[in-house]
Design a protein around this nucleic acid. Structure first.
Length: 1008
RNA sequence: GGGCGUAUAGCUCAGCGGUAGAGCACUACAUUGACAUUGUAGGGGUCGCAAGUUCAAUCCUUGCUACGCCCA
């Protein structure tokens, strides 16, 4: 197959991808091979490929292809995430666009709609990953809502519920406490899903009148505003929440308020009588030093409330799920407030009055608003209701509205207990985080981890495996019976189990009834009426689990857990790469899970370190370690966690749809080819830095691919074909011996770079070798040989060149899979030769360094390069045409070397003739190469002054270096204290530079 | 407020205790020869600022400044 004149990526990419996939090349049967495993961060099932995926997946594919070439059983697990909130939002938005809405459907109907949408758009991103060339194991494609995955999720939930932590509490428990409530999505979200934004807000100051004492007598105190003060001043950024205030707090050490602690205020508007308490939360420096306490709608106030003895269940709640005012349990909120929205939301232009406005207006009318007085530019006093302030405000990262702290019952994971071994794993080096700087961030978060709220009030996701039973139903009251079973008054019995059947067994025990007396109810309690017998309805928890709760199980649930728990003796050996057991070579008898867990490497963006990576570490160690029974070497999800940065727009901005600066990786693939985009990602990926998008650079790597294409085309047209052997052919010619040595060095550097996960260094290494050494020097050096008459040299050179080109293709394959596969096959079937290989490069063998570096050859070729460069440079500076062929007079010492290189030097350095001996008189150009002077007579042609200037410049540069070295060596301290190697190096450098300077000086003198 | 990162050529970035490199851009020259998606040569940097450690600092330490990110 002759290589086409033009390299067109689009014409080869699809061909080879389909070929690989159809031939099972991504996961060939290698039962005896050492495993290598990466799990792919599952993209949202309905998502599409963005530039960050391109980076993330390129890096993973490089490692997978590399390890596959190295002969390992490389498994790259792929799949998609159901992405609860994101997917449900997409479907709801589509419904809205069609004039429909979720509430028009029941739960099952809606979920069916989501599945329909998943079927419709679920293939997008997986098709796009294929276009990037990712060699994942599609035969085992996973989805986080696959039945086996649901089993894993359920088991994890149930097991954690049943497992007690050090305090005797379940590792998963239900609790009533404040959660981050998203009033738009109407669900609780975790701390991580809340982002703090700075917004322009206000700081209001109010007077709260002191309440009369038990005797009805007026209370006053000597406060900050003077003697006999009958109110206490509070300040707030959220005045509307005063409708649910339950206390006013002052700092215990704040003497200004010492007298009033223990007294009461009578809240305006509601008339609620609430205590003034001492609590360290109050900051004496902030506002008046007194702070209103709303335990039901502020996280700090919740803690204060608990400290002063208010139980969560007694805390007042004044908002419904939409963030509208609702009546508190003490019914003290005036009617006109009920139903109002809490405050004006951005993008909401309603003219209806909001609770916040109405509260401020009411307090102002009551004369309880303390106005803010400021000065304008002219120095005049301006009176306003409140002081403008920048306020840190929590927003939901998905819904985009202000989070309302809300008191609800939710399921929590005891993350603190789970975090401990995961922290130790990193501390002890059992999990290595690369780059290391992220370890601190990891520790900082893990050591301060809060209970993880995992329940979501959504429909799309894994249903919480919990069922509730009644405390009474009709005339049947189980309250006393349940108390005897250890339940608190009014506490609904909850049965956590993997199935309803199991829940029913537990319920039967608790209620003391037969299983048949218990039935699954579709609705909540209260909808049921007595049927004359004590038949007990159990209803399923309505909530689903946080998406990240399930994706945390990705490294093992995708490999068959919990079903596949068999540990076979051979699997351990297989993992160590030592197995010779024939039973394993006849098929994959070793358990997939035990062969591929722990994974070797996880590559993810640092932005999901907490969301995903840390949680995988926690769940992996817990469940694969079987609760501490197994050593960390077996329980950790991966040995190495590599975190890469963000891909930013060219101007350094974060890419976002709203900014309109999103770069589509598929557009780049269309324009420059997948190989070029991949190479760009690798070359730019240095550890610990974001990548700025640069189309020009992608273009540059497309050019690199073209360069390689043309080099192969040149090779092919000169009778160079595929290599006939894995090891380097025998070589006698210097150029061949040299390039074989350079391959070894390149390979060593490349292996090291990949071992260190230095993708940039790896890419640059192979780039440099291919372009600068192979194309620019080697091919030029061998042209006279392969284009001359056929002889032993010609055939040796063709052998070596073919072998070197193959090494390039294999080493480049992980980075540029498509072009390398194309050229691999094209080279194998050069005209007139039989194909030497009937296999694909994707399954080729990675080169193993074997040949020794030939120092003589290296010295010789380095000299040619130095001489040729000096010649070209001198010509350029003297205005001599680059193509001009010149005569050279070499010193006698070079006779042997130049003699054998005659034809090469003629061609490469453009020498007309060479002779040896002393310099003749007359004008000449003089080259100092490697301490020897070469004379190029140019009588009548040369501009003496230009040559003088050139030599002078060179002389000065070398002298300066020599002088600096001399200075250092004459420093006694240096000679005495510096490392001996440094002194030796300085000495030899000085000798070299001095010699060179001396030569140049002589050359200058010769010119007169 | 706490933590982390970054600052090196016009741009994007490597790097290193012994006075600096790449790609792109720029300048000059070349052009039927694998390749203009090219070749050759060249210009360009007091390595953010200040102090300290050291025989020696762009590199290590400290402080400062600027920018970015994370957490509260």
């Amino acid at each position: 197959m002759t290589i086409d004149k033009n390299f067109e990526p689009a014409s080869i990419e699809k061909k080879w991808y389909d070929h690989w996939e159809n031939n099972n090349a991504f996961r060939p049967e290698r039962p005896d091979a050492q495993p290598y495993t990466i799990v792919n961060p599952p993209p949202n099932v309905t998502g599409s490929l963005h530039i960050g995926h391109a980076l993330d997946n390129t890096l993973q594919d490089i490692m997978i292809r590399y390890e596959r070439l190295r002969g390992k059983d490389a498994l790259w697990v792929v799949g998609t995430d159901h992405a609860g909130i994101a997917t449900q939002m997409v479907v709801e938005r589509q419904m809205e666009a069609a004039g429909d809405k979720r509430s028009n459907y029941n739960r099952e109907e809606f979920i069916d709609k989501v599945w329909e949408w998943k079927e419709e758009s679920g293939g997008t991103i997986t098709r796009q990953l294929r276009r990037l060339g990712c060699s994942m194991d599609w035969s085992r494609e996973q989805f986080t809502m696959d039945p086996h995955f649901t089993k894993a999720v359920t088991k994890v939930f149930v097991d954690l519920y049943n497992k007690k932590n050090a305090d005797g509490r379940g590792m998963i428990y239900r609790d009533k406490r404040l959660v981050n409530w998203d009033p738009k999505l109407k669900t609780a979200i975790s701390d991580l899903e809340v982002e703090t934004r700075e917004i322009n807000g206000n700081f209001w100051r109010f007077k709260y009148p002191l309440a009369a004492d038990e005797n009805g007598d007026t209370v006053t105190f000597d406060g900050p505003d003077g003697a006999g003060q009958n109110y206490i001043e509070v300040a707030t950024t959220r005045p509307e929440t005063m409708l649910a205030d339950m206390a006013v707090a002052v700092h215990p050490d704040d003497t200004r308020y010492a007298d009033v602690v223990g007294k009461y205020v009578e809240l305006p508007i509601t008339g609620r009588r609430v205590p003034i308490v001492a609590d360290e939360h109050a900051d004496p420096e902030l506002g008046s030093g007194a702070v209103k306490i709303t335990p039901g709608h502020d996280f700090n106030d919740f803690d204060v409330g608990k400290r002063i003895g208010i139980e969560a269940k007694d805390m007042l709640n004044m908002f419904d799920g939409d963030g509208n005012v609702c009546q508190t349990s003490d019914s003290l909120i005036p009617k006109e407030y009920v139903g109002l929205h809490r405050f004006k939301l951005e993008k909401e232009n309603g003219t209806k009055i909001q609770a916040r406005e109405l509260v401020v207006r009411a307090l102002k009318e009551l004369g309880l608003l303390i106005p803010h007085i400021s000065k304008n530019k002219k120095g005049e006093e301006v009176v306003s209701d409140a002081e403008p302030r920048i306020i840190q405000t929590p927003y939901g990262d998905r819904g985009g509205v202000v989070i309302e702290p809300w008191l609800t019952d939710q399921w929590y994971v005891d993350a603190q207990t789970l975090a401990k071994p995961a922290i130790d794993a990193v501390k002890n080096g059992d999990i290595e985080i690369v780059p290391k700087t992220w370890e601190k961030t990891y520790f900082n978060w893990m050591e301060n981890i809060q209970p993880w709220c995992v329940s979501r009030q959504l429909w799309w996701g894994h249903r919480v495996p919990a069922w509730y039973g009644p405390t009474k139903i009709g005339e049947f009251d189980f309250t006393e019976h349940l108390k005897s079973q250890g339940y608190r008054e009014n506490q609904l019995p909850v049965f956590v189990a993997t199935t309803f059947k199991e829940a029913r067994i537990k319920a039967a025990e608790v209620y003391g009834l037969e299983e048949s007396d218990i039935f699954q109810a579709p609705e909540m309690e209260g909808q049921f009426v007595s049927q004359g017998t004590a038949r007990i309805p159990l209803w399923h928890d309505e909530d689903v689990l946080d998406t990240w709760f399930s994706s945390a199980l990705w490294p093992f649930a995708t490999l068959g857990w919990p079903e596949d728990t068999t540990v076979r003796a051979e699997s351990v050996e297989v993992r160590a790469g030592k197995s010779n057991d024939p039973s394993t070579s006849s098929g994959r008898t070793a358990s997939l899970l035990h062969k591929h867990y722990p994974n070797d490497l996880l590559i993810s963006g640092f932005d999901i370190l907490f969301f995903w990576d840390a949680r995988m570490a926690m769940q992996g160690i817990e469940f694969m370690g079987e609760g501490g029974k197994k050593p960390i070497e077996e329980s950790r999800p991966w040995k190495t966690l590599y975190l890469h940065g963000l891909v930013r727009a060219a101007d350094g901005q974060k890419m976002s749809k709203s900014k309109g600066n999103v770069v589509d990786p598929l557009g780049l693939i269309d324009e420059y080819g997948a190989d070029a985009l991949r190479f760009f990602m690798a070359a730019m990926e240095s550890q610990g830095r974001d990548i700025k998008m640069d189309d020009e650079r992608v273009k540059g790597y497309r050019n690199f691919a073209t360069k390689l294409w043309n080099a192969a085309r040149f090779a092919q047209s000169n009778g160079i074909g595929a290599s006939q052997s894995l090891s380097a052919p025998t070589a006698t010619l210097a150029a061949n011996r040299w390039i074989i040595g350079e391959i070894q060095e390149t390979l060593t550097a490349l292996d090291k770079a990949l071992a260190d996960l230095r993708f940039d260094a790896a890419a640059n290494t192979i780039y440099h070798f291919t372009w600068d050494l192979f194309c620019d020097w080697y091919l030029e050096l061998i042209k006279p040989i392969i284009q001359g008459e056929d002889n032993d040299d010609t055939s040796e050179t063709r052998q070596v060149a073919g072998w070197v080109l193959d090494q390039i293709l294999v080493m480049l394959h992980p980075f540029m899979p498509f072009i390398t596969e194309e050229l691999w096959h094209a080279m194998a079937s050069s005209e007139g030769r039989k194909s030497a290989r009937n296999y694909d490069i994707i399954l080729a063998k990675w080169p193993v360094p074997k040949a020794k570096i030939d120092n003589d050859a290296k010295a010789e070729i380095d000299w040619i390069i130095a001489f040729t460069s000096a010649m070209r440079s001198a010509k350029n500076e003297l205005g001599i045409a680059p193509g001009a062929k010149l005569d050279c007079i070499f010193p006698d010492a070079l006779q042997a070397r130049v003699g054998t290189l005659q034809s090469t030097l003629e061609r490469v350095a453009r020498i007309a003739s060479s002779s040896f001996g002393d310099a003749p008189d007359g004008a000449s150009m003089q080259l100092v190469v490697d301490g020897q002077t070469i004379i190029v007579p140019l009588e009548g042609v040369i501009d003496i002054e230009a040559e003088k200037a050139r030599l002078t410049k060179a002389y000065e540069a070398v002298s300066k270096e020599a002088k600096s070295l001399e200075g250092r060596l004459s420093n006694e301290n240096f000679v005495a204290r510096a490392k001996p190697e440094a002194v030796e190096k300085a000495k030899s450098d000085l000798a070299e530079k001095s010699a060179e300077a001396e030569r140049l000086k002589i050359a200058l003198e010769r010119l007169g």
